[in-house]
Design a protein around this nucleic acid. Structure first.
Length: 263
DNA sequence: ATGGTCGGTTGCCGA
């Protein structure tokens, strides 16, 4: 079974790129973030035409939006709304093998890393705190669960192009990285990407649109994650980070990350 | 120290 996660930055605009991903990598499950489409306008027919008969999505007008596209039947589909908002950041469903898959989109948090003057950063920190408590309160960590998505935090030094230069940049500040690792530890999640590619090897999944030559400067960050509970983590192989997708026509600023899951 | 580029609810906001 092949699973992909991708912040696609507008599903409707980049439907041809989704088709290319499906043709070249043959994922059975695609978890998307930033679909940027209201549920009423979700391109369900086009998604089904790519072979994904089983789809769960949660979207609002203009921004955010998450989805799970599957060639395998999905059961117990649902979602959760975070920090008291209804803003399309989380859906989940269960695969035929009993594994529950979650597609999550944590807020970016704005530019100023001070929750007292930046409401977006305050929202992000509250989100991460809720994340730490939600899975222990609502799920059994002995079950097979996979949590993927754009978590908008690069937790480790090798997850950014310059640890020192990004310490005060939102996505890599200590309050965020420590908060995300606390959420990871609270449920006993395995960070399956870092498990397979240990530090100090650099791993990035996002490169800014800003700047002339993203590949030459290579100022990336690992914002997209694949977490798993221990009972399924050992069945997850090395991630394939589709760096070349950053050069596809009209690309997303995030690239797809793929893993195989045995069973 | 600054500005740089995207997409969508466009002449701005969120990222």
């Amino acid at each position: 079974m092949r699973l992909a996660t991708w912040n696609i930055n507008s599903l409707r605009l980049r439907m041809p790129l989704l088709q290319r991903l499906v043709e070249e990598e043959a994922p059975d499950i695609v978890c998307l973030q930033e679909t940027k489409v209201h549920d009423d306008l979700f391109p369900l027919d086009a998604v089904k035409a790519l072979g994904f008969e089983h789809v769960v999505f949660s979207g609002i007008k203009g921004y955010n939006g998450v989805a799970i596209l599957s060639k395998l039947p999905l059961t117990n589909a649902g979602g959760h709304q975070w920090v008291g908002r209804t803003d399309g950041r989380h859906v989940f469903a269960t695969l035929p093998n009993g594994t529950e898959v979650h597609s999550l989109y944590i807020p970016a948090g704005g530019d100023e890393p001070d929750p007292l003057i930046n409401e977006k950063f305050d929202h992000k920190l509250k989100f991460v705190t809720e994340l730490k408590d939600w899975f222990p309160a609502n799920r059994d960590p002995s079950r097979p669960i996979v949590l993927v998505g754009d978590l908008n935090i690069a937790p480790y030094e090798a997850d950014v192009w310059s640890h020192k230069q990004l310490l005060k940049i939102v996505s890599h500040t200590p309050v965020e990285t420590e908060g995300l690792i606390a959420a990871l530890d609270a449920f006993g999640w395995v960070d399956t990407i870092r498990n397979r590619i240990p530090e100090p090897e650099k791993v990035y999944t996002w490169w800014s649109y800003r700047g002339r030559d993203w590949r030459a400067s290579d100022r990336g960050r690992r914002l997209d994650h694949i977490w798993a509970t221990p009972s399924i983590a050992s069945a997850i192989g090395s991630p394939k980070i589709l760096k070349d997708a950053r050069d596809w026509p009209q690309p997303s600023d995030h690239v797809p990350v793929l893993v195989t899951i045995d069973g």
